Simulated scan of single mutants.
Amino acid sequence: MTSNYSDTPVDKGILIVLSGPSGVGKGTVCKALRECAPDIVYSVSATTRSPREGEVDGVNYFFKTREQFQQLIEQDQMLEWAEYVGNYYGTPRKFVEDTLNSGKDIILEIEVQGALKVKQKFPEGVFLFLLPPSLTELESRIVGRGTEPEDVIRSRMSVAVDEIAMMEHYDYAIVNDQVDSACSRIRSILTAEHCRKDRMIAKIQHWMAEVRK
């Protein structure tokens, strides 16, 4: 029997935003996710700084002139952006939207203020806050880097407490006690989010329309 039903539209991917205080292990968790969940796309930021040796446009960053970046801001094509040490950094809207429309999940690893800006434009995203097992452990991780003096460490801990207080704006809190465990929790959250009925409405409506033709 030949079906007369047309193809079901591709499900949109999920935007995942991961934040947490400095030293909590965001980069380490994202690196581990690349290995255990290679189907997740990692957002590529845009910047006005010059490429470093070995960096590739569109892979490490989207390299823009200052004028190009400012134009993207004016056209509301940056989900979030900031200026740091004389250069712009930000998340291009088009790259994120194209990835989601292709049915792939995409993850943004950004600081709290940037995440809140993204949430204003993508409230349907999944916002994850990575926590340390304790503040004592967080301080130990920062001290363990051996790269910062005591006054900087105190400042980082103060900022960390302020950032943790912003956790109420996130959907999930994940304790990074072990990297593998944190990755497993994130994957479980994504599995559950893909099963939410409101993410399947377009597919179900398409099926109903096909049957009622």
Rank of each mutant, 00 (worst) to 15 (best):
V59L: 14
K203P: 02
R52L: 10
R141H: 15
M167S: 12
K121M: 11
I106E: 12
G125L: 03
L15C: 02
Q113R: 14
V17Y: 15
A182F: 00
K121H: 06
D11G: 00
L190N: 03
I73G: 01
I204S: 14
R93Q: 04
D11Q: 05
A32I: 08
K94V: 14
L18R: 14
P92I: 05
E109G: 11
R34L: 03
T8W: 13
I14Q: 10
R141M: 12
T28D: 00
E35V: 15
A37K: 10
M78G: 07
I189Q: 01
Y5T: 10
S102N: 10
V175M: 03
I110Y: 01
I201W: 11
L131Q: 05
I174H: 05
T2C: 05
L190H: 11
K31G: 08
Y61L: 11
G20R: 04
D98V: 09
V175Q: 06
F122S: 02
V24P: 05
E83R: 09
E83N: 01
E124D: 04
T99E: 05
V56C: 05
L190G: 01
N4Y: 03
V17P: 15
H194L: 09
M200W: 10
E137T: 14
L138H: 04
H194S: 03
F127Y: 00
E83G: 02
L131R: 12
C36S: 13
K117Q: 04
